[in-house]
Nucleic acid binder design. Structure first.
Lengths: 220, 220
DNA sequence: GTCTATAGCTGGATAGAC
DNA sequence: GTCTATCCAGCTATAGAC
């Protein structure tokens, strides 16, 4: 099946180009050249360079998310979530895939084809995170006070920003990630407080926060 | 002084282009055309398109940060910080300046001239955030357990990611921001706990977290 | 300082041979 | 399906008139 092979080589070459040179360096010529394939085939197989990028984004994200699915599935505490988060960050930074997503996200501005592809890709990540958060938060004292879906969006966005920061200042990104780690430990400590303190926190929270949650949910 | 006027018109037009069409749409022709100026002047005044973008980034960021400086200066509690954060997000989304920074950050990949400019620009924001965090955290029960500089990087990165997310899914970005708001309220509630609970939290935290902080600081 | 004109290049996209 | 050849648009950068 030589067709599939060519398509695969093109999507792989496109991702490599984004990783190493940034999205601005992507063109039918550079990508095809890297794949050792004629430039015209980009248009034969994908119609346009944007479509090639969109397809590559979809395929790669699905593949990466699938890799972590098993690890996400066994997370049940905040600390475990942080551990997995660190693993994902480390691996993805080495492989450069979150960077790819960040690049495509930026390039999606005023590019409808890419926009929907990156939105779909990001949703793959957030839905995974959301499932984990739902499980982790459901067991803790904050159950019902936070919205897992919204929090998942926040986490994903933070990850994207971190990966972008990493490309221009890796030291700062490393420090930031360590700090998030420490925030997680603090959250965990609060999670492990005795029942008296838990009730105190909940009492303080439930009024204002609960009303915020319900009003937001109602408006959706 | 007609020179400065032309330079200003070019940097302004460059930023407008990034805002409305994304960084990929920036070229000497599009920018100069928008400014109603001849294309060659980009090279006369700035030497290259990259340099124009870098300069525009520097100028604009300095201007935006200066606008919020007064507001940052009076922040002394976590809730006030969140309020200012919301204001910044709302204003910057309307004006599109954080989006510009996010775009340039992505475009900095493999572009040394832009890279240093965006790194400088981001540092302007983080140093502001750091000052505020130092003040806010110093008054709270977490004083000494968190590193304001690292946390400032994390906050800035999260903002960048949010603004990027906003361009492809504004609903998700809004939800994420609301959730961060709620996290802030929770933190504030903990901040306002009685002295007994405070001591309990600190006791839980201080061992593990403190050692993490000191080991990190020592390694720098 | 600003304009016109242009050289030289790269990129998107298509036609047609194989 | 893949390649060669090609057209055309748009881009960077410079030279030279004003």
């Amino acid at each position: 099946m030589p067709t599939a092979d060519t398509r695969d080589r093109l999507t792989a070459a496109a991702l490599d180009t984004v990783r190493e040179l940034g999205v601005t360096a992507v063109s039918a010529r550079t990508v095809a050249g890297r794949a050792g394939i004629n430039q015209g085939l980009v248009f034969y197989h994908f119609g346009s360079v944007d479509n090639l990028m969109a397809e590559a984004c979809r395929i790669e994200t699905a593949r990466r998310v699938a890799i972590y699915q098993d690890r996400f599935a066994v997370v049940s505490t905040l600390r475990e979530l942080l551990d997995v988060g660190r693993q994902v960050h480390a691996t993805e930074r080495a492989e450069g895939n979150v960077t790819v997503l960040a690049q495509l996200l930026a390039a999606s501005n005023g590019n409808p084809a890419l926009r929907t592809a990156t939105a779909d890709a990001l949703r793959l990540w957030t839905s995974q995170v959301e499932m984990v958060l739902r499980r982790v938060l459901g067991a803790g004292p904050l159950d019902g006070l936070l919205d897992p879906a919204s929090l998942a969006h926040a986490v994903s966005a933070a990850f994207i920003g971190l990966e972008l920061l990493d490309t221009i200042d890796s030291h700062a990104a490393e420090a930031a990630l360590g700090e998030l780690d420490r925030l997680g430990l603090i959250a965990e400590a609060i999670d492990n407080l005795g029942p008296v303190a838990r009730r105190a926190v909940r009492a303080k929270l439930s009024h204002h926060v609960q009303t915020t949650v319900t009003s937001r949910v109602r408006s959706e």
